[in-house]
Design a binder for these strands. Sequence first.
DNA 1: GCTTGACTCTATAGTTAATATAGAGTTTAA
DNA 2: TTAAACTCTATATTAACTATAGAGTCAAGC
Lengths: 135, 135
Amino acid sequence: MKIGELSKVTGCSVQTIRHYEKEHLIASAERSEGNFRLYDEAAVEQLLFIKHCRSLDLSLPEIRQLLALNRSPGAQCDDVNRMMDRHIEQVEARIQELTKLNEQLRMLRRSCSNRRTVEQCGILRNLSATPVSSG
Amino acid sequence: MKIGELSKVTGCSVQTIRHYEKEHLIASAERSEGNFRLYDEAAVEQLLFIKHCRSLDLSLPEIRQLLALNRSPGAQCDDVNRMMDRHIEQVEARIQELTKLNEQLRMLRRSCSNRRTVEQCGILRNLSATPVSSG
DNA sequence: GCTTGACTCTATAGTTAATATAGAGTTTAA
DNA sequence: TTAAACTCTATATTAACTATAGAGTCAAGC
Ligand SMILES: [Zn+2]
Ligand SMILES: [Zn+2]
Ligand SMILES: [Zn+2]
Ligand SMILES: [Zn+2]
């Protein structure tokens, strides 16, 4: 299987696959006589694993760590669990942040109706004033 | 006022101020004989405006547009309102995304308790399987 | 054999909004 | 006059790709 087919099968772009190779998320592929990368089913599995992790916003270093753990099946999995806990914490913190931001933006938006001039624009006036306290 | 003082007064780092100048968010500052940037109160105001916008996650191009509008006080402010609406939409979309993500992560996390081996780890097994349908 | 087109290769630059250097020059005070 | 503190420009780094240029490979058709 050449890289184009792997790309179709997995839904990862060709550049992304090469990128993952350079970042050591997947092993350097075998090469054909003409220097084309050649892949097998194992590559498909691994790429889907990576894609799944990315869909959960895990970072490439985090995924690298998970892949390494996968290679030592006898080890304890505490590290995996800790990583997940930390990751979940960060996602929840970001949700909090954005929720607060959203409230401020909606408040700001309410300060202007259409058909005003820039001079009268409540949004611009509020942006010029001291920031709304976020506490 | 030299750049260091402007930095202290506004809470923007010196590099950030230079960066904003290069990106044309603030005008090129006057220079002293020794080629040091010199600022006045107007620069403080403008920088605080930018900082306030950034705290609302407005992008530099968006801020540039707001600053341009600020310079034509007679214009209609519809553009400002539209930008805000678009920006709010994006923030809310991101909150939705992260909320969905968070549910999936928590579900995944529940699939493993401590003290298992990597081979038995529910998290790794689920990551290897087909992604959870996201609704 | 030759050409065409689809594919692949490497290397490089761009994306965002800063942040961090290096190496040089300026200013102020001891 | 020397040192500290400050400033200058230019360049590299961050994350995870994405896009491009320019060259090489391969299969099919004539
Ligand atoms: Zn993470
Ligand atoms: Zn308005
Ligand atoms: Zn925006
Ligand atoms: Zn586990």
